[in-house]
Design a protein around this nucleic acid. Structure first.
Lengths: 229, 229
DNA sequence: TCAAAAGTGTTAAAAATACACCCATGG
DNA sequence: CCATGGGTGTATTTTTAACACTTTTGA
């Protein structure tokens, strides 16, 4: 079967930059390519857009097929379309970035992907296609956005300690934050719910657990409130 | 001549949301469609991406062809790909937004566009395709971005007064700003060059002219400085 | 001489920063 | 009993916000 058009058309793909935290490091989920081009090299999960599916749906489908991840935070990043970026012919890639709690979602090689792995963002280099550039764009976006929107919580378990949250920001923003000032600010926003629970199985004083109140954030947001680190 | 592929491919277009200021109002450049679908309706300038051109180059080409605009500020906005957004068949549109000084660039109907016109953003409604949504997205982006990046200057002539600059922000952000505080802040950034020139042909005290020092901004930016309203 | 916009400082309130010690827990 | 991270308050500095009158110019 084949498809014919009056004018040439580029192929359209989606690619996903999935960020996660592991061992206090920011990581990105990569898959090892099982076929040419760039066979054996690390690449972002992604694939061709189906004719009857929305772009975001396409990104979610590819993510599920290649890594098993579903129901995660996902946002459009940028569209890359430089001629020559895919040796197979003109291909336009709509890139998405995603944030995931790696505790709930261990990596998993699946269906057609040979291998999926969490790679330290600082060590992820010489990826297939222009994926280095896509990753760099996603990192810049994450660093910019995390300060103005409460998306960092997507990288943590539902229940987390204030220290975990602070470390998350320190890792992403690459600078140290003052413990007392950080706590005061984040609590002053009144977006965290203090739970009647503490950490388990730690060999020191157990910290109180909190969760992010997404519902409250949405309602505050509508009345003009802006989250700011 | 025709083009055949093993799998179906969407068509890919670019659309441009061009903002300008006229009579203290934020306006958007629209063209009246000269052919179906949506014949006679207002639409964003745009068209199909050529196979060998970069996406941004494509946006610039369409802008020049349809409106005569060239060498203007242009940035990628978002990619719209919902099935059904174009009645002719699956079409993915990479949207750009642009800022232009309307004094240098009067509107002009050109080549294949029937008519081009600056329309008040509040009155631009029921556009062709999903262009209402694209415009809304562009407006939100402009309002968000103008506070953190010195892009507002793109809407003014090279030489401008502080009052013009203030009005620009008031129009885009839809709130009044204090004259003295505004001046102090903007001058404190040290990004404006005070010229030895004043306004001409005004029937009141002539204001001093300034220009934005883009070179200085770039160098400050590299050393970590961030513009903030 | 009037109208219209340009230009200019100070004060008070709020927000951001810097900083150090005691507490609870498990090993 | 010690090592580890949890938890807490204040003083200082910086930033922001509010506010009104004089000057220049052309009509």
């Amino acid at each position: 079967m084949s498809f014919t058009y009056d004018y040439p058309r580029p192929a359209v793909t989606v690619d996903c930059v999935v960020f996660g935290l592991q061992e206090q490091r920011l990581r990105v989920l990569l898959i090892r390519r099982g076929r040419p081009p760039f066979e054996g090299q690390w690449a972002l999960p992604g694939g061709f857009v189906d004719m009857d599916e929305d772009l975001e749906a396409s990104a979610r489908r590819e993510l599920q097929e290649e890594t098993g991840l579903r129901d995660i935070f996902l946002e459009q990043l940028y569209t890359f379309g430089m001629p020559g970026r895919d040796p197979r012919g003109r291909t336009i890639s709509v890139a998405y970035y995603a944030l995931v709690n790696t505790v709930n979602h261990p990596p998993r090689a699946d269906d057609d992907a040979a291998e999926a792995e969490w790679v330290d963002v600082d060590r992820a280099r010489t990826l297939a296609f222009d994926h280095d550039e896509i990753l760099a764009t996603a990192l810049a976006r994450l660093r910019g956005k995390v300060r103005y929107q409460p998306i960092g919580f997507e990288l943590l378990p539902r229940k987390f300690t204030l220290s975990q949250l602070q470390q998350l920001y320190e890792v992403i923003l690459e600078r140290e934050l003052d413990k007392r000032n950080f706590r005061r600010r984040i609590l002053a926003m009144d977006l965290l719910v203090e739970l009647d629970e503490k950490q388990q199985d730690v060999s020191h004083r157990a910290a109180r657990l909190y969760r992010f109140d997404k519902r409250k954030y949405r309602s505050l947001e509508e009345s003009g409130f802006v989250f700011e680190l």
